[in-house]
Design a protein around this nucleic acid. Structure first.
Lengths: 331, 331
DNA sequence: ATGAAAGCGCTAACAA
DNA sequence: TTGTTAGCGCTTTCAT
C-alpha cells in the first residue's frame, strides 16, 4: 500500500485539510507550510487516490469510447485525435471494441450509462437503432460519424453528409462514361451505409438509371466480404460489360480490388472502383475514394465532450464536417 | 444524481448491509428479502457506484494499456485480442497512445504506477530505456513485443525472437540470389529494431558480406520515412545494381514500396523488398514479410495480466511466441 | 491561515 | 438471517 494524505499530514505536522489545500491550490497556504507539505509528499512518494477523489467529487475523469473495430485504421485515426484532445486535460479514454456487434454495443453503452465508471461517452459509428437507444441519459454523449437521429440536450452529433458525397460519386462515375453500375453496400443497420446507397442510386436516377438496373450487394464491411461480393459481381457480369462499382467502405473496397486483380480483370477499364472513407492505405492501393475527415471528427468530438463536461449548459447538437473526393487510379 | 444503496435499503426496508449481501451474493439472504431488494433496485434503476467500490476494495478494475500508435493496425490487432481476453471479466482497458514519444510513454507509465487509477499495466512495444525504467513497481505489468530486459516478479514479457527471424530473412534473400543488401532500420531506442538489424547483418556476415558493405538507413517507423529512405537508396544505387532491401517494419515497407513504384524501378527484379510484422495490409500489397503473431501476443498478455491480478504469486516471467516468413511478391 | 469533522457509497467485521 | 457501524482517502464546511 502506498501513502495517503494522512501520512503526509502527519509527517508535515499539519491537518489533512491543509495538505488537500496545498494539492488543489484552492485555498491560500503560507509558503513555508506549502513547501514542507510538498517535500513530505515527495519523500513519501505520495499521489492522490483517484478512486477517493472520484467518490467525493462524483466524477471519474474517464470517458468511455465505443468503437466498432479498433483494427480498422479509419477508427484508429478518430481515436487518436480524440485522445490528442483529451490529453490536454486529466481525462482518459476507456476504449471498448464492439466487434461490429449491436448486442455488444448495447451492453457496453448501458454499462457506461449505469455504472458511473465514466463521466461521458463517445460513440463512434454506432448501430443501435433509434428506437432502442437509451432514453434516460444522465451524462454527455457525443455520437461520431452517424447522422443525427434524436433530440436530447445530452446528445451531440459530429457527422458528415454521406448522402451528398455519395451522389457526387455517382456523378463522377457517370461523367467518366460508365453506364452500368453496382453498389457494394453495408449492413442495413448502419445508417450511413443506407445513406450512401441512397445517395448513389438517387443521383443515378437523375441520369435516367433506375434502381433495379443497379446491381446491389449488401455486406458487412470487411475485406473478405468485399472480396466475395466483387467475385459475384464479376461472375454475373456479361463479358466486356463495363461497370462502375461503388464500394461503400474502403476496407471492403480493398477486398474488391483484390478480387478484380485475382480475376484478371482490368481495373479502371473494365471495372471502375470507388470506395468510401479514405483510410490511409487507400492511398497506397491508389484507390479512388471519398475522404472522410477523421482527424477533424475526432478532435471536434473531443472538444465538444470536454465543453459539455465543464459546462452542462453547453449545447452544440450537430456539427457537420465535409470531406472531398479523391480520384486516384481505380476509376 | 442516481440512487444509492441507501435508497434501495430504505425502499426495501432492510439495512444497507443486506442490500450489499444481495448484490455481492457473498452471504445468504432469504429469498423473499432478496426478491424484494432486487425489485427495488430495478424500480430505482440502481447500479453500484464503481468509485465507492474501488475505494473500499482498493481495486479499480481498470487496466492501463500504453501503445505507440493506435492507428497502426499492427497494434490495433494486439489491442483487440487483449480486449477480447478482458471482456470475459469486469476489467476494462484505459488506452493511451504515446505517439511514439518516449517522454509521453514515461509520463503515462508513471501516471499509471502512481495514481492508482488502474490495477495493472500492459506496455506494448515500449521504448523506455532499461536504466530509466521505474524500479519500485507496485502492480503487475506485462510488456508485449519487446525482449525481456529486467527481472522483477511484477513484470512479465511476451515477445518473439526478432533476431532469429531477421536472420531467416537474410538467408532467404541470399538464397534468392541477391548479393547486395540494404536495411531500413528503426530507431535506436527500439530494442526490436536493433535486434532486427543485427540478426540481418550477422547472418549476412556468415555469407561473407561485411556490415560496411550493407547500406543502412535509420528511420522512425512511418510510411513517409520509409518512402524517403528508399528514395535515397535508389538514388545512391549504381544503375542495374540488384539490391535486397529489408525494411524492419511493414508500415515503412509500404512507403518503400511506394517509392519503388514511383521511381519506376522493377520490384522483385531490380529491388527485392521484405518487411516485418505482416500487418493486415501487407497482404493486399503482396509484400513479403515476417508475420508476427499479434493475436497470440495480445491474448497471452491478457491472460497473464488476469492471472497476475487474481493470484499475486503467479509467475510467468517470459513467454516467447514465434511467427513465420510470408513470401509473397516483393522478393 | 489552519484544523476538526462530516460525509461521498460501499463492504465487512461484529453484534444481535 | 439481518442490522449496526467503522472506515476506505479525499474534499469541504465551519470553527478557531
Amino acid at each position: 500500500m502506498s501513502s495517503t494524505i494522512k501520512d503526509v499530514s502527519r509527517m508535515a505536522e499539519v491537518s489533512t485539510a491543509t495538505v488537500s489545500n496545498v494539492i488543489t491550490g484552492k485555498k491560500y497556504v503560507t509558503p513555508e507550510v506549502r513547501e514542507r507539505v510538498f517535500s513530505c509528499m515527495k519523500k513519501l512518494g505520495y499521489s492522490p487516490n483517484i478512486a477517493a477523489r472520484a467518490l467525493k467529487a462524483n466524477k471519474t475523469y474517464n470517458i468511455g469510447v465505443i468503437v466498432p473495430d479498433i483494427t480498422n485504421p479509419f477508427f484508429g485515426e478518430i481515436l487518436k485525435s480524440i485522445q490528442a484532445e483529451l490529453s490536454r486535460t486529466d481525462y482518459q479514454m476507456i476504449v471498448c471494441d464492439t466487434d461490429q456487434k449491436v448486442e455488444k454495443e448495447r451492453r457496453m453503452l448501458t454499462g457506461f450509462l449505469t455504472a458511473r465508471q465514466v463521466d461521458a461517452v463517445i460513440l463512434i459509428a454506432p448501430r443501435l437503432p433509434v428506437e432502442s437507444f437509451p432514453q434516460n441519459i444522465n451524462m454527455p454523449i457525443v455520437i461520431v460519424d452517424r447522422p443525427p437521429f434524436m433530440n436530447n440536450s445530452k446528445l451531440s452529433f459530429v457527422y458528415s453528409d454521406n448522402r451528398t458525397s455519395s451522389a457526387m460519386i455517382a456523378s463522377y462515375a457517370f461523367n467518366a462514361g460508365y453506364r452500368k453500375f453496382a453498389c457494394i453496400a453495408g449492413p442495413e443497420n448502419v445508417p450511413n451505409a443506407n445513406l450512401r446507397l441512397e445517395g448513389f442510386t438517387d443521383q443515378l436516377s437523375v441520369y435516367g438509371i433506375k434502381k433495379d438496373q443497379i446491381v446491389i450487394k449488401r455486406i458487412e464491411f470487411t475485406f473478405e466480404q468485399g472480396f466475395d461480393a466483387m467475385v459475384q459481381i464479376l461472375a454475373e457480369r456479361k463479358s466486356d460489360e463495363r461497370i462502375a462499382v461503388f464500394v461503400c467502405s474502403d476496407i471492403a473496397a480493398w477486398g474488391a480490388l483484390e478480387a478484380i486483380k485475382t480475376g484478371g480483370v482490368r481495373i479502371n477499364e473494365s471495372i471502375g472502383l470507388i470506395g468510401y472513407d479514405d483510410s490511409f492505405f487507400s492511398r497506397l492501393l491508389e484507390l479512388s475514394t471519398y475522404q472522410t475527415p477523421t482527424e477533424q471528427m475526432g478532435s471536434i468530438a473531443g472538444t465538444i465532450i470536454l465543453k459539455k463536461l465543464e459546462n452542462t449548459s453547453y449545447d452544440e447538437p450537430e456539427t457537420k464536417v465535409s470531406g472531398q473526393l479523391k480520384i486516384r487510379k481505380t476509376i
